[in-house]
């Protein structure tokens, strides 16, 4: 009887360790956060070129992550990229209407993400609104091309 108690305890600890491990994988490794508020709101933006932006990429403001890219699809009216972002609910109705969104790269070869920078307009952006002022991703080939053609002009 005593041996089976120890055994049951061992199995219990084993399962507890497994669950704790899963929590570790969730919080520490995949960066889920417990205090993430249930509330969030969506903003849309159209970019002429998104480069290598992927769904689930970060959306930052002054370097602080405030949301994620939810979906990317081709807008067939304008033939540009239609990006939907999901942002922290506490920012709803606080961002000015003339906020700009730019696609940035972390480091030279790092992931691409969206950086938001605020403007000064009195009206604010609510759920489902569109950011008009956007800046496309820098594509290395285009930069080089520009550089070369500038050189040729001189």
């Amino acid at each position: 009887m005593k041996r089976s108690k120890v055994m049951e305890l061992g199995v219990g600890l084993f399962m507890l360790a497994g669950i704790l491990g899963l929590v570790f994988l969730g919080l520490r490794v995949s960066g889920l956060s417990l205090e993430r508020p249930a509330s969030s709101f969506e903003l849309e933006a159209n970019f002429a070129n998104i480069g290598g932006l992927k769904p689930r990429a970060r959306v930052t403001m002054a370097g602080v992550t405030v949301g994620r890219v939810q979906s990317i699809e081709l807008d067939t009216d304008w033939y540009d990229a239609h990006v939907v972002m999901e942002l922290d609910g506490s920012l709803e109705d606080t961002l000015p209407e003339d906020t700009t969104a730019a696609i940035l790269t972390s480091g030279l070869l790092g992931e691409q993400y969206i950086g938001l920078s605020v403007g000064g307009a009195p009206e604010t952006l609510g759920d489902g609104d569109r950011i008009r002022d956007t800046q496309s991703a820098l594509v290395l080939e285009e930069l080089i091309q520009q550089f070369v053609s500038n050189m040729a002009k001189e």
Binding site: L22, L25, G26, R28, V29, S30, G31, R56, E111
Partner: peptide, 15 residues
Amino acid sequence: YWGNMQASVDFVADV
């Protein structure tokens, strides 16, 4: 180390 990990690992898709 941790930051890049958290940015790239998705709980549902990877874990």
